[in-house]
Design a binder for these strands. Structure first.
Lengths: 232, 232
DNA sequence: CGAACGCTTCGTTGTTGAGCGAAACATGAC
DNA sequence: GTCATGTTTCGCTCAACAACGAAGCGTTCG
């Protein structure tokens, strides 16, 4: 059997139906920054009763869009994986051609650096991925992208803690499509770990109510040392 | 005003609702190969009455997903633009992580070469775009990607008709994300024109009922002369 | 233990919208 | 003009499902 289309009309419709309700859309958008939130909080964000939100969460869970972590009487929800986050980011495409004939009309802060799921995206994310691949710090293999020891040494030299850096060597990342840059940035567990480390170290700060990430002056300097520059 | 999210919950829900009906999904999938079809034919494909299809087409049109060409008593529908096609191609992402843990499980023929909207996509499309950018045959500017005269000369030398090649110089293309390769291929009017020319010249043939494109032995040879190789 | 809490399930109501046939409206053929 | 064809609009029915309150279940705290 050679499927004529990789996606049947029914699968496509089912996927669309999951987005077709403002309450569900709000839940997905709220989780796009990689946060993990309990059902009650998502109900409040979506503006519906806990009972209604519970039904929505069940549908999203069954649809494979959400992941679940149960802890006592709490149920914490998150996006299922990087692909879901990248896919949601890509949902802006139809609007891009309608509402933004000039691509520059988009929010420049969000273009510069933001989270995609839990990892770094935007110009900075793409620059990091490409620079480190160029330098041979990242290597793509059949099991994903891994960080090489030479990179870990450089990170320690720039001020990272040695012990967590050793853990990075065991993690795997993968390419994730960046919808503003239309190139790859580093996703997967490795991408998440690197982004978390940069947040911890104060190289990046989270914008108050956005998915945007704000690089600090110190962070920009350190990143430049690591070959990551924002071309302007 | 700095919009917190580039897409509100209502916009996202509206977009999802457009896909949420199997009949509408079937219409969009049928138009993904770049064809232009009258309302009656789309009704037959979707398996609904002309009256029902008319309502669906109106919604898709109002939603900005379709374009319209009226001719006499016929109304021909097509996808609105390249972005819509690329976006639909990206709709497989959520399924990719569920149903295809190994990316190689996808149809290799479709991965090699296919149409995205009306232009060449897949390994061959990406290879062409990158090779020609490397050679300096394509140049990216503020108004898109254009073909340089040196490339036109090379095309004529490989057997293209001189007159249509001159027209290519006036067209503009743009990068379009390839969901199997996760890199850019050449879309826009320039991409469409080049693909059409290759089909006319017999370098590529359309697969009977798929969006797949089959490169002919002659076509592969000529493409290799132009620097476009399928790395295996 | 009992009370408070977080969440889900159940039962009900109301709205949305998909679907069709019939009729209307065009256009093109004769 | 008359008829056939392609498409849309109208009126209707029916199914799906979002939403809530109430009740139920399991967990945590005092």
């Amino acid at each position: 059997m050679t499927e004529a289309s990789p996606l049947s009309r029914y699968q496509l419709a089912e996927l669309g139906a999951l987005l077709a309700e403002p309450a569900r859309a709000a839940i997905l958008l709220a989780l796009m920054d990689g946060t993990t939130r309990p059902a009650g909080e998502l109900a409040r964000i979506a503006g519906v009763s806990p009972a209604t939100a519970s039904a929505h969460l069940k549908r999203l869970l069954d649809g494979g869009l959400l992941g679940l972590h149960e802890q006592g009487r709490h149920r914490y929800f998150r996006l299922a994986n990087d692909d879901i986050a990248a896919w949601l980011e890509g949902m802006v495409l139809p609007h891009a051609s309608r509402t933004a004939p000039a691509a520059a009309a988009r929010d420049p802060v969000l273009c510069r650096a933001r989270t995609c799921y839990r990892h770094l995206a935007g110009q900075l994310g793409v620059a990091l991925c490409e620079a480190w691949l160029d330098r041979g710090w990242l290597q793509t293999g059949s099991d994903g992208i891994c960080l090489l020891p030479v990179a870990a040494d450089a990170l320690v030299h720039t001020g990272w803690q040695a012990s967590p850096t050793q853990q990075l060597l065991r993690l795997r990342g993968r390419g994730c499509l960046d919808w503003t840059e239309r190139r790859l940035h580093l996703g997967g567990p490795l991408g998440v770990a690197i982004t978390d480390a940069m947040l911890d170290a104060g190289w990046l700060r989270r914008a108050p109510r956005q998915r945007a990430l704000l690089p600090t002056p110190d962070g920009l300097r350190r990143l430049a040392e690591l070959g990551v520059r924002l071309d302007t």
